[in-house]
Amino acid sequence: MTPPLIQIENVWKEFGDQIVLERLSLSIAPRSFVALVGPSGCGKTTFLRMLLGEEAPTKGRILLDGKPLQPEPGPDRGVVFQRYSVFPHLTVLGNVMLGLDLKGAPRIGRLFGARRRAAADLARALIAEVGLAGDEGKYPAQLSGGMQQRLALAQALITRPRVLLLDEPFGALDPGIRAGMHELMQRLWHETDLTVVMVTHDLSEAFTLACRVLVFERLRDRAAEKHRYGAVLAQDMAVWPPRIAGQPTPPKRSQAA
C-alpha cells in the first residue's frame, strides 16, 4: 500500500461560534480522484479551501506528503473554480504561460527570448490537449463558459501540481458541454500524474468521474443544533467497478445525466 498523499487528522473548522466541520479524519491516496458531495452549506467548499491553504483548520492538521500543509496557496496545489479562474487581461496563451512565467522569472514575472519560446511551445501543446488549438490569441471574454474552463484546466496543469482541486468546475455549464468536459477530465486524470479532489453538488457527476465519493452531511440539522454541531464525513464510498488512474475503461453506455 502506498503512503497517502493527503492525510487529514481529526480536523475541525469553526467560524466564530459556528461549527462547520467536525471530526474529519481521512487519507487520500496518490493518483486517486475523490469527489466531495453533500447539500449546500455542509462545508464542502470550506474543506477545499483548507486543502488549498486559504483557510486553516481550527483543530487538527492536514499533511501533504507527510508534511504539514503550507498555510497559504502554493504551486503544489492547482485549482479550478466555478468562475474567475482565468485572467481576463491575458490571452489564452498568456493565461497558460503564466505559471511558467512566474516560476522562471521571480522578479519581473515574464520570460523572454529562448526561454519564452520554450514556455510558449509547452503551453501550446497543453492548449491543444484541452481542445483549444487555434484560440491562443483570444481573450477569455471571447470564449464560451466551457472553453474558459478548459483554459482554466490547462492553466492549472502547466505547473504540474501534485493535487488538482476543483470547486464545482462544471457547475455553470450546459449538460452537453459538461459531458465533453467530463471526458476531458477523465483523459487528463489518466494521462497526467495527478490526484484530483473535486467538490460538486451533482451526484451523477461524482460517480461518473471519481474513484471515491465522500459525502459530507450535517447529521444534526435542527435550528437549535445548527450552531453546535458541524457537518461530518457521513459516507465514504469506493466507486464500483473500480476506476484506476492510467487504466481507462472503455466508455459504457452514456453515464452523463
Binding site: S85, L98, L102, K103, P106, T159
Partner: peptide
C-alpha cells in the same frame, strides 16, 4: 479567486502585484 489562482501558479505577492493587479 484570481489572487488565489495566481498563488497556486506560484506567484509571490510581488508577482501578484505586477502580473495580476497592475495590468488590470
Amino acid at each position: 479567486e484570481q489572487i488565489v489562482k495566481a498563488q497556486t501558479l506560484g506567484a509571490s505577492s510581488w508577482q501578484v502585484a505586477i502580473r495580476v493587479v497592475l495590468p488590470q
